[in-house]
Design a binder for these strands. Structure first.
Length: 554
RNA sequence: GCGGAUAUGAUCUAGUGGUUAUGAUAUCGGCUUCCCAAGCCGGUCACACGGGUUCGAAUCCCGUUAUCCGCACCA
């Protein structure tokens, strides 16, 4: 098979220190990759660029929560059910089914023995039952510890802190919270290299909004920006404003983050021609989502690959945690003036309720205090699934006027969720260029300056001591200014340029004999190979400006 | 998970049941040269792992692992 771009990139990435297969000296394991020195720096640069968009520009706050997540959290969020499927295969029509779709709640072993599990299509007896559980389980503590999972997404760490974060944000909506970190999925069969890993990095933003005001404060500034949307039938080349007015995207808030994502990806260096947004069909939506747009990037080998999901998770998660934990996950929509409501308030008489209901009296009291007294008839409450009648002499009714400052509601969530490793791979693939120089194959990674792992090569033209010491000074000045450099005195200058081109270093600074007298150096541009003579003192400033990576026109 | 193919230095690769296992690139050292992968000399680094057959296995057989292709799966 001829080498395609994926093979070439894999080879280059390993050879030059971007990506290594993990644990290779012990045989390796599918779905795990190490980032070498250049890969780790590239990943850090991508994450920091992401922070510039989501934290600095969009005002989200960043938190950090454990990757080991308590069973209860993922039970409440639906992941325990949704990620654990027992699946059986049909040997005849080669289809797989969830066991529970076929036999309901019958124990599986029994059903297998009795050959009750038959293919819904052709009636053949199904075989090979295997659990498809995408979460890694573990136990916290020794012995009867508490069950836990490695998190399948960082989002739950944000949801479970909602009440604290809402207060941090001084009880105002909208606000966004981000987290960058590892997620884990025990993929059945990882393929496609780093595009499908079992441990992977994600950057997620959970933006909490009022479901009645699904907008974004900066939406007006982007209404005329173009965007390419594919709804599985038609490709719409529209403006962000049109996307919303024509209901291709169903809210301004969602559309805003579609645009922000686009802006981030293009700044990071994805090829606009290999980039689109695609809407999830209703049958591919996650269990928590009501609408989802994927940013898809095109790979020459793998086709269109989802790298970012921008989902409207509605109130799903906060509601789930509210139900399961009992902690208030509401926000308040303030009225212009507090509303005054007359209410027939119940005041329980504990001296009657206590002896009557014993240990249940406390629960009954709590329920009664939230209830409206019936205008007529008897009062009943439901405690532990039992309905009990409360005698008239066990409570008083008083008519009170209650002031309500606003309406309670569960916020909705817009979630842009980025697969960092996928973005990283695509930045390599989209920027991988082959040219031929003097009949030799020559490769260039045309990374934008803001994400390139090394910003500048620093080269004395010869290994003359005088040149080397000036170059060393320039090198340390740059490093003092947080600019990553690669200092190299060996080999010909062409070879040194070539080495930098292959790993995507945008600039090389060369110190030659003239530098000693005119205090100028040469800056060489990777993409044009053009050279510019500039004063030594100006270099830090020039490079800092280049790294700033202003947003491209698109 | 099922079926097929593959596995030799960091990379690409030659090779045979029998001495010390090719060659190139890269890398390191030396000489030389110095603005786009120059040359010469020298050095480091490999038969995926485990078992079997055999006097002898990197080579043949089996298993494992990984990778690639197809199927299935894929918030």
């Amino acid at each position: 098979m001829p080498q395609d771009i994926y093979d070439k990139i894999s080879t280059m990435a390993k050879r030059r220190g971007f990506i290594y297969p993990s644990f290779e000296i012990y045989g390796g394991i599918a779905g795990f990759y190490d980032y070498g020195p250049l890969g780790a720096q590239l990943k850090l640069n991508i994450e920091n660029l992401w922070r510039r968009f989501f934290v600095l520009k969009d005002n989200c706050v960043e938190i950090s929560t454990p990757t080991i997540t308590l069973f209860e959290v993922l039970k409440a969020s639906g992941h325990v059910e949704e990620f654990t499927d027992l699946t059986v295969d049909c040997p005849k029509c080669k289809k797989s089914f969830k066991v529970e779709d076929i036999i309901g709640s019958t124990p599986v072993e029994e059903a297998l023995k009795e050959k009750k599990i038959k293919c819904l299509g052709c009636g053949t007896i199904l075989t090979n039952p295997h659990p498809v559980n995408l979460m890694f389980g573990t136990t916290i503590g020794i012995g009867d510890g508490r069950a836990a999972f490695l998190r399948p997404e960082t989002a739950q760490g944000i949801f479970t802190n909602f009440h604290l974060l809402y207060r941090y944000n001084r009880e105002r909506l909208p606000f966004g919270v981000v987290q960058i970190g590892k997620g884990y999925r025990n993929e059945i069969s990882p393929r496609q290299g780093t595009l499908r890993q079992r441990e992977f990095s994600m950057a997620e933003a959970e933006v909490f909004i009022d479901p009645k005001i699904k907008t974004h404060p900066k939406f007006p500034s982007i209404v005329n920006e173009p965007i390419k949307l594919f709804d599985n039938e038609t490709e719409h080349n529209v403006t962000v404003g049109e996307a919303v007015s024509r209901h291709i995207i169903n809210s301004q808030a969602l559309a805003y983050y579609v645009h922000l994502t686009s802006s981030f990806l293009l700044t990071a260096g994805v090829d606009p021609k290999k980039f689109r947004f695609r809407k999830h069909a209703s049958d591919e939506l996650a269990h928590y989502a009501t609408e989802c747009w994927d940013a898809e990037l095109y790979s020459e080998r793998f086709g269109w690959i989802e790298c970012v999901g921008i989902a409207d998770r509605s109130a799903y998660d906060l509601n789930a945690h509210l139900q399961a934990s009992g902690v208030d996950m509401y926000a308040v929509r303030k009225y212009d003036e507090p509303k005054v409501v007359k209410r027939r308030k119940i005041t329980p008489k504990m001296d009657v309720l206590g002896p009557l209901f014993k240990q249940e009296a406390g629960k009954i009291k709590a329920i009664l205090e939230t209830m409206e007294a019936p205008a007529k008839g008897s009062l009943t409450v439901t405690v532990d699934k039992k309905t009990v009648k409360i005698p008239d002499n066990a409570y008083d009714v008083t008519e009170v006027e209650e002031k309500t400052p606003g309406e309670k509601f569960i916020p909705n969530v817009i979630e842009p969720s980025f697969g960092i490793d996928r973005v990283l791979y695509f930045l390599i693939e989209h920027n991988y260029k082959e040219v031929s120089k003097k009949d030799e194959e020559y490769t260039i990674l045309s990374f934008p300056a803001c994400i390139a792992p090394i910003t500048a090569g620093v080269f004395p033209l010869t290994d003359d001591e005088k040149l080397v010491s000036v170059a060393e000074q320039i090198n340390s000045d740059l490093r003092d200014a947080y600019i990553h450099t690669y200092f190299d005195t060996t080999g010909t200058i062409g070879r040194r340029y070539a080495r930098m081109d292959e790993v995507g270093t945008p600039f090389c600074i060369t110190i030659d004999h003239d530098t000693l007298s005119d205090h100028q150096v040469t800056i060489r541009d990777r993409d044009t190979t053009e050279q510019q003579r500039v004063p030594m003192k100006a270099i830090v400033g020039i490079l800092k400006e280049k790294i700033a990576c202003s947003a491209p026109v698109h």
